[in-house]
Design a protein around this nucleic acid. Structure first.
Lengths: 140, 140
DNA sequence: TTGCGTGCAAAGGTTTTGCATGGCA
DNA sequence: TGCCATGCAAAACCTTTGCACGCAA
């Protein structure tokens, strides 16, 4: 069974640096590869395998969230910052410049409520990203 | 403007069957592999390469749309049924049973309008899927 | 006949797994 | 010392590309 017993977890250089990297970039969605590259540039090389495995652990612990991004080629990860209430708002992602926008807005909460009441569907904005074009890119 | 020089396009057994398959399943999101399997079961085997290439053509023609789905492993495709106005509504997808729900609702159009006016962002619901749990699965 | 379509094989890119070694507690 | 963590190599997947042959028009 999915016994969510907390598993032991050691504090290692690699895992710490991966988490730090995600925190430093908490406004962005990073791919496993991007994390790997950033760490390398900082002189903190970490094997790709370890990046993937650490991200998985961090997701289980709830510190990190996985998103499926527009490109579809690779998954994106983002630090879960409780102070930003990311579980309560929607994310918009520009398909032109890739910018990620955190949308804090009561209107959106109402939307969720509406969908739940009228369509019997519980939206999980942890997994949901609205795609489109941001103001800057549409002016271009 | 969508002025893509129209390329010549031959009507072949494979392309016809792929499109038929998408039409038969127009309420679902199918992966390239699923299409391949369905056709095989019908005795209409089509090479994977051909499935991918045909889907690309069909997308250019505007008959088919590509979505990035939750699993993230593979892309999903769906027939564009103009009579259903899929470009005007949102799609909900249940992360438990995989069911796809077409949400026809004025409230949602307002949402788009709201995001555009207040957040300068043009949502493309061609690419957007709201993830969550449907009524049946949450009762389970 | 022309040139797009098809499909096998192979390449490319991302993610996972096997296994021996390393390192936290 | 007991385990989890790490990382190389290889496997597993999904998708794309090269190439020779097939087939619609």
């Amino acid at each position: 069974m999915e016994n969510k017993k907390e598993q032991k977890s050691y504090k290692t250089r690699q895992r710490t640096q991966i988490l730090d990297c995600l925190i430093d970039n908490k406004s962005k969605h990073l791919t496993a590869d991007e994390i790997s590259v950033i760490l390398k540039k900082q002189g903190n090389e970490v094997g790709k395998t370890t990046v993937y495995r650490s991200l998985e652990k961090l997701m289980e612990e709830g510190s990190v969230r996985k998103y499926i991004c527009e490109e579809g080629k690779s998954a994106c990860f983002q630090y879960v910052d409780d102070s930003e209430n990311c579980h309560r708002h929607f994310h918009l992602k520009c398909i032109k410049c890739g910018k990620l926008i955190h949308l804090e807005c009561d209107y959106l909460s109402d939307l969720e409520q509406h969908i739940f009441e009228h369509h019997k569907f519980t939206v999980d904005n942890t997994k949901t990203v609205l795609y489109g074009v941001c103001g800057e890119c549409s002016n271009g």
